[in-house]
Amino acid sequence: MPDLPDVNQPGALPPVPHDVAESADRPEPSARLELPETGDWMRVSPKYVLVEIVGTIVNAVVVCGGASLLWLLLDQTWALWVGIAVLVASIINLVFEPRRVRSIGYLLRGDDLLFRRGILFQRFVAVPYGRMQLIDITRGPIARWLGLADLKFVTAAATAGVSIPGLAEADAESLRDRLVELAESRRAGL
């Protein structure tokens, strides 16, 4: 747990100086979002790349197929461009797929679950264990063939909680049991 000033102190103000100075003379400015001293992130199974690749290819085939039908049968030239754009985007996607999957990570901290995802579009989510409403484990056809499962941590919030894809099935189940256990010990209403 990072050493923080006491948030609960009445009248506490944010710890940062107001009007953060322009960063001309900041030591080694890093524009990337990176949590400090979090420890080792748990990564998802490398096999999950396959699931993503198949998904991207199926998607590209469907869209490009539709576009080429429009182009060939109905003489819509714009469909050709759309098809080409989707194809290029999918190929770029495929190239970055392994890195993207490597960027997915989760971490069980003392009182909350951390989740990260994305390289270009990064995001970090923290959800306290006590907020758990239920845990969902789903398996798509390809994931099942590879022995993988997706785990979803659902809270009462409108935005979906945390969804960790591509866990080995046994890992997913043990993680679920662990999370439920943690949530039980830290139960807090809504």
Partner: peptide
């Protein structure tokens, strides 16, 4: 600001746990 986002993240996540308790 990026650095402040990290501060906010820590404050909110620890604060949520503490005040829920």
């Amino acid at each position: 600001d990026v650095d402040e986002a990290l501060v906010l993240f820590e404050w909110m996540s620890t604060g949520a746990v503490r005040s829920a308790l």
